[in-house]
Amino acid sequence: MSDWLSNFLGDPQALLVLVIAGFLPNEVWRMLGLWFGGGVDEGSEVLIWVRAVATAILAGVIAQILVQPPGALASVPDWLRYGAVAAGFAAFMLTRRSIFAGVVCGEVALVAGKWWLG
């Protein structure tokens, strides 16, 4: 039982890292929004810049997963990963921005391509 629990929780230090590097820097913005929310104009120039930077960081994360893929995704050749994303994006645009259609099409392209390569 305690074996299972220590397996489940893993390294206690990693849990501390989760709180310091994950929970606190993320939650602070929600609480700041709650405390100082009244006085900030949602359409202000600073927030437009903030949104642009946050979007670009997210884009960087997407690119990182595609360019330096983790685990099993690394077994897929580069061209197939990029091709699957392109196929998903094309389906998304053709279906008047349906996320569902795009994700399904990208997944089918990736899995079918990898299966065909063997």
């Binding site: 884009a59 994360v61 983790p70 995704l73 699957a84 994006f89 795009g102 994700v103 990208g106 997944e107």
Partner: peptide, 30 residues
Amino acid sequence: LMLTPLAFLLSTARNSRQLSDVLALVLGLA
């Protein structure tokens, strides 16, 4: 593992209405 980049790319693309959001997405990828 491919679900993550696909779902994030498409939902961000969907929420990008302003020029600054679209450019940030494209430039961030590039």
